[in-house]
């Protein structure tokens, strides 16, 4: 494993919501509630979990799009929450995001050259228009689109093409880290693999580091070196992809895995069907957050929150039943 590009330490992001008739006592949606992980240069870290578990919020907080409640994020040696505005502007160039919705992620009033070229307008204000357009053409070719599309508007493209435009925009400033927030979940299955292949190719071509967010394990499988599983604002298990798929330790990971078809013949897997709904992130369950739905729940799970511990070989898991 290479060196660390990103370190996330005890990150918390709460959204205040005013509650109560008197409106004074504020409640919080604890979207991200104390997570830690590292991302190494050149790898892909998959982040998986059901909808609403805080994956996007994690990505957006790292990007500096929403303010953190607590914790720190160290990117390339810099604590990004303590950066000054100018420094943040420079660091911004090195981290970019690919968004989930190919429709709302492109401004419908802008031409492709404005959408992708915006990055140059902001960071290289002296760049002349023809030069900017040439850069945009190059980027279009890189993501596999016709360079004639410069003056087209988003509504003229299919979902897959729009997602490619979004990828080109993210690449414009030659970032080191790309956070891809469910980049294919809104696309037709037939298009998904094309976009995933493109992301794969770009990673090699530009030695990119990815945080790849998905809501089920099957998509991240082929792409991720390591996979983190999130549940209700927490990372419950984090390990090498192979290890996690072959020997999942957390009951929640097992449940997620048992929901996808077994790729290899002869591999047996416990079938776990989760009961009940995900509890509210406004008042998460006491103790282990998963205990309300866990088939193996014991007394301690309802009282004490399990530590997120390394049980060897950088396999992290937060469960009382797993002995480290």
């Amino acid at each position: 494993m290479g060196e660390k590009l990103l370190e996330v330490r005890d990150l918390k992001t709460y959204f205040p919501i005013s509650g109560g008739l008197l409106g004074r006592r504020t409640k919080y949606v604890r979207a991200v509630d104390g997570i830690s992980f590292d991302v190494y240069r050149g790898e892909t870290l998959g982040l998986v979990g059901e909808s609403g578990c805080g994956k996007s919020t994690t990505g957006r907080t790292i990007m500096g799009l929403i303010p953190p409640t607590a914790g720190e994020v160290i990117f390339d040696g810099k604590d990004i929450f303590s950066l000054k505005k100018r420094e943040m502007l420079e660091t911004r160039k090195e981290m970019q995001m690919i968004f989930q919705d190919p429709f709302s992620s492109l401004n419908p009033r802008k031409m492709v050259k404005q959408i992708i070229g915006g990055a140059f307008e902001i960071h290289m204000p002296h760049m002349k228009k023809p030069e900017r357009e040439r850069e945009v053409e190059k980027l279009l070719e890189i993501v596999g689109l016709n360079s004639d599309y410069l003056t087209r508007y988003p509504h003229e493209f299919s979902g897959g093409q729009r997602q490619r435009i979004g990828i080109a925009r993210a690449l414009a400033l030659k970032p080191k880290l790309i956070i891809a927030d469910e980049p294919v979940s809104a696309l037709d299955v037939s298009i998904q693999s094309q976009v995933l292949n493109l992301l794969n190719k770009l990673q090699k071509q530009f030695s990119l580091t990815y945080i790849f967010i998905a809501h089920d394990l099957s998509v991240v499988r082929h792409l991720s070196d390591r996979v983190g599983v999130m549940y209700l604002g927490k990372v419950v298990e984090l390990a090498d992809g192979d290890k996690l798929y072959r020997r999942p330790l957390h009951p929640y990971t097992k449940a997620l895995l048992s929901a996808i078809p077994i790729p290899q013949v002869g591999v047996k897997r416990e079938r776990i069907i989760l009961e009940g709904d995900v509890p509210s992130p406004i008042s998460p369950p006491y103790g282990c957050r998963f205990h309300t739905r866990c088939p193996y729940c014991i007394d301690i799970c309802m009282e004490i929150e399990p530590n997120f511990k390394d049980i060897g070989d950088k396999h992290y898991v937060a469960c009382h039943l797993v002995k480290g």
Binding site: R60, L65, R92, M97, S105, H123, R169
Partner: peptide, 11 residues
């Protein structure tokens, strides 16, 4: 999301 994208670019 397009506003977030623009903010990510440093707008």
């Amino acid at each position: 999301e397009f506003v977030e994208a623009s903010r990510s670019l440093g707008a």
